[in-house]
Computed example of a mutant assay.
Amino acid sequence: MPKSLFWSRTDTAGAEHALLDDGQGLAARGTMLAVDPIPWTGRYQVTTAPDWTTSRVEVEVEGAGWLRSVRLERAADRWRVTTAEQGDLDAALAAAGHRPAGLPGTDDPDRLGDALDVDLGGSPLFNALPVRRLGLTGRPADTAYRITVAWVLVPSLAVVPAEQVYTSLGPGRIRFSSGTFTADIDLDAEGYVLRYPGVAERGDAG
């Protein structure tokens, strides 16, 4: 993997380190750490087609006494979602005074049919997928795209469809909106997040 990106979380104690090759689409693997809602470590792998349409994502999240994994694979315009679980995340959440996470994955993969991108919760790397697929870094200001993504929540690894809007604000900046949440995100020349207000900031030299 010829490139290395590192982000520090600004919404909670945590970080993300991604190693990637983007010569023909994206092939990346990364590690995430966070303490919210309870301490967990996540590992992921993501592969896209040359046009940056997501084809496969694998995520594993682990904490004290539990481990969950989910795999999403897209073929013939459909998503296949596979999950596994060890231990009891809900018990760990309850012990810390939090609500249950529910089951990982989805009970109806067809609900994800319109999604060409996967969004992994809390991961700045995954914002690059629609940015690069839509060519947003080269679009005129105020060019907006409304998309559906397969949103993977952490640490539960539940997978739900989510509507998001990406708007070009000119070179090096986009506006991200989903529901009532909006953020103006700074990007580098290749479309990777430099600063995501309230979420993360890049800490590497690249």
Rank of each mutant, 00 (worst) to 15 (best):
S123H: 02
G63I: 01
L5A: 10
G14M: 04
G105F: 00
A205I: 09
D77R: 00
A76P: 12
L187Y: 14
M32L: 15
W7M: 14
R68M: 00
V149G: 03
P39G: 09
D142K: 04
G170W: 02
A115M: 08
H17P: 14
W7R: 13
V193D: 15
V165W: 14
V154W: 09
A200I: 04
G23M: 12
W79K: 07
W151A: 12
F126K: 15
L157I: 04
F176W: 02
L33P: 07
T180Y: 06
T143Q: 09
P50S: 12
T180A: 09
T137E: 02
Y145V: 14
P130L: 06
P124M: 10
P155M: 12
E85M: 08
R56Q: 04
T167S: 02
A205P: 06
S177T: 08
T143A: 12
V70I: 10
R132T: 10
A15C: 14
S4R: 15
L67I: 13
L103V: 04
V57T: 09
R111H: 06
L19A: 06
Y166H: 03
G87M: 01
Y145S: 15
R173V: 07
W79Q: 04
A158Y: 02
D88K: 01
G14T: 01
L93K: 00
A91H: 07
M32S: 15
F176T: 05
D11V: 03
V61D: 02
V154T: 06
L26K: 12
A95Q: 02
R111W: 02
I185D: 11
T180W: 05
G135P: 00
S168Y: 05
E16I: 03
P161E: 12
Y166V: 03
S4M: 13
T12E: 11
D119L: 01
L134F: 06
L125Y: 00
L169F: 07
D77Q: 05
A27E: 15
